[in-house]
């Protein structure tokens, strides 16, 4: 079965991203397909490579990046939500005249249409938030 995933909260503050990660891993283990993971609201903060959690804690961003690499996941950060919260890729930083970018490996920035498309294409859309 094909899953679309929506994550509405950032890392650490809420459990949403952890629950979504465990759900996605379990779905992949069962042989399901993850069509797309869309990050919205504060969820866009999962995609900054500038987070440095304590050594003995999980690194939520790195975990997503590694899972994406291993399984070819499509991690999409909403551009409108990202602009509000300072998540930038190289192109967007250039366009906005900002002196750097912070997007993590495996993530890409795109529009809300990608969420709607996930709803259309996936057999199930599962929302994780607060």
């Amino acid at each position: 079965m094909k899953f679309g995933i929506l994550i509405n909260e950032g890392p650490y503050q809420h459990q949403a991203s952890d629950t979504a990660y465990n759900f996605v891993k379990a779905a992949l283990d069962k042989g399901h397909e993850i069509f797309r993971i869309f990050f919205y609201h504060d969820g866009v903060n999962n995609g900054t490579r500038f987070t440095v959690p304590p050594q003995d804690d999980r690194n939520i961003q790195v975990r997503w990046s590694e899972l994406a690499e291993k399984h070819g996941l499509d991690l999409v950060i909403c551009i409108a939500a990202a602009q509000r919260r300072g998540i930038m890729d190289e192109d967007e930083a250039k366009r906005q005249g900002i002196d750097g970018n912070n997007i993590a490996p495996g993530f890409r920035i795109s529009g809300l249409g990608q969420l709607i498309e996930a709803g259309i294409q996936a057999d199930r859309l599962v929302v994780f938030g607060d």
Partner: peptide, 19 residues
């Protein structure tokens, strides 16, 4: 909180998909 506003933004974008 911003949920209501950003939800409305999804509705407006989603309208273009004719669902």
């Amino acid at each position: 909180t911003i949920y209501a506003l950003e939800s409305l933004e999804v509705v407006l974008i989603g309208a273009a998909f004719e669902q």
